[in-house]
């Protein structure tokens, strides 16, 4: 990532010879294409790029990227990635994970990766289901989700990935949709952000949870239901006919009508991606009464974990020689002469 000379590559340079094995029609295909289209625009070298994944449908991803890749174990990709990045901070590290992998079995690692702010991109493919194990409800499934393990509907409340990430201290929150043309823009911003960049991608599992996001991802009605936020621009949607304003009473956001483009008069807020409180309000808007906030929701860089580690290693080593013989001869020592010597 440190190599500043942009490298010329084409999307096909990022494809492996391996047969892609997701179900036909799975949203993962679109995400793979979006990533392979984005990589050339980043100007990075394939050999300096490492994709690390956990377990789940999404976690097959590294096998299809012509980079270095490590398909690890369930939930542990953030921990493996931390070792990779600390061992070689020059590598450009991407973590591919899913809702079960990152928020259930690996929730602890996700939290600590984000609070430490390791420089990497976390792409969480949220399909609100366990696909690989044949369709059990997941920690992001909505209440009432019927699945083999919840034949009468799930009763526990779901986790909100972006709210979790913000709570864990993430400095970058992005959201995208598998098939949406804006996904590469979000990915590019995530890559440009130095630190842990958390991106939730709504991904359709055609087999076990088809169309669960359709109410806002369908082309028809998209304008009414999607709000693509942009730093410095008013929070408008529905072709500019609606916007979000601050509601003193609920200490939250409210939807306001915008007449004749007079968004200021309607009190519509200008998006400021550096404001954590605004990010919280945006990611927690309940769908239905509100649109779904998408794009770069929060972006407020802070020093990264690996740079702090490297710096401390340097400072602590300053002026010290790596003299092993001296190290093992340290402390209270005594010399045994040929003749036993009596004190």
């Amino acid at each position: 990532m440190n190599d500043m000379t942009p490298i010329k590559t084409a999307p096909k340079d990022w494809e492996t010879d391996q047969e892609v094995r997701w179900c036909p029609g799975c949203g993962d295909y679109a995400i793979l294409k979006a990533v392979q289209r984005t990589m050339p625009e980043l100007g990075v070298k394939p050999e300096n790029t490492v994709f690390v994944s956990g377990i789940g449908c999404s976690s097959r991803f590294p096998y299809y990227m012509e980079t270095y890749g490590f398909h690890t174990i369930h939930g542990r990709a953030p921990a493996v990635a931390t070792g990779v990045k600390l061992a070689n901070p020059d590598l450009d590290v991407w973590i591919i994970t899913g809702d079960g992998d990152a928020l259930s079995i690996g929730g602890n690692h996700t939290m600590h990766l984000l609070r430490r702010n390791l420089d990497c991109q976390v792409l969480l493919f949220n399909n609100e289901i366990y696909g690989l194990t044949k369709g059990q409800y997941s920690p992001t499934s909505r209440v009432g989700t019927r699945s083999p393990s919840t034949p009468f509907g799930s009763v526990d409340r779901p986790a909100n990935p972006c709210a979790f990430a913000l709570g864990a201290g993430a400095r970058f929150i992005g959201r995208g949709i598998d098939v949406h043309k804006n996904l590469p823009t979000v990915l590019k911003a995530a890559h440009a952000h130095k630190g842990a960049s958390f991106v939730e991608i709504f991904q359709n599992c055609i087999v076990y949870n088809d169309d669960v996001f359709a109410p806002f991802t369908e082309k028809k009605g998209a304008a009414e239901n999607q709000l693509w936020v942009e730093h410095g621009k008013p929070l408008l949607y529905a072709g500019g006919a609606k916007g979000l304003a601050f509601d003193q009473e609920t200490f939250g956001l409210k939807v306001v009508e915008v007449v004749g483009g007079e968004w200021q008069a309607a009190g519509v807020i200008v998006h400021d991606e550096t404001k954590r409180a605004l990010a919280h309000l945006l990611v927690e808007m309940p769908f239905g009464a509100y649109p779904v906030a998408l794009g770069v929701i929060f972006n407020a860089p802070a020093p990264t974990f690996e740079s702090a580690v490297v710096e401390q290693n340097l400072t602590a080593s300053k002026g010290k020689k790596a003299d092993l013989q001296a190290l093992i001869s340290e402390g209270q020592t005594w010399q045994v002469e040929k003749e036993p010597h009596i004190i």
Binding site: V52, T72, G83, V84, K85, N88, H109, V309
Partner: peptide, 20 residues
């Protein structure tokens, strides 16, 4: 690296070995 748990401790070590 003082990890968040035992699993992360070994997983990070594996990641470091992978990275050389």
């Amino acid at each position: 690296f003082q990890a968040e748990d035992e699993i992360a401790a070994v997983a990070s070590a594996i990641g470091a070995s992978y990275a050389g």
